[in-house]
Amino acid sequence: MNKIFVFLMAIANFILMSTLFQQFRVYGVLANLCIVFSIIFAILFSEQHGYIFAIVSGLLQDTFLGKVLFVNTIIYIILIYVTVRIEKIMFKGNDLTPIFLISMATIAYHLIFFVFMFLLQSTIPIHQLLMHVIIEVILNSVIGLFIYRVVFKNVFGYKLGDYNA
């Protein structure tokens, strides 16, 4: 896939998430499509595609809606770096791969965010946040699986889990 297209998609994703998708909050929680898309791109296209999406959406998020500069950007970069190294030893043609990677990434995102906010003395008590994290993990994995299946079919030419292909 063309990298300029990934760049534009990241901007479109940010704009839609901050405006239109706000109407689709589940119990006050919004799925983080930045994590979902950047990880799927990193798995199915290349590491660079993942980084482009992660950095662009991270920078936009930090500039316009962040309390602190670069905090989301750096977390997304770390997530992609680790994901790509784990994904090398995993089998791509399985439903569990995206679910595992995306849910782990979402949990890791919140853990790292907590550490940063702890250092900046701006943390939220973890018990207040637990429900948010659980709902977000479920949302991200479900949406992630759906997108993964669509992208997988486009890249490899056969459906995910279709072993006769």
Binding site: S18, Q22, N32, C34, L65, G66, K67, F113
Partner: peptide
């Protein structure tokens, strides 16, 4: 208000 926070940590908007 033109944009709301996309993370679930803070309540910021633009």
């Amino acid at each position: 208000v033109i944009a709301k926070d996309i993370g679930n940590w803070f309540n910021m908007f633009t």
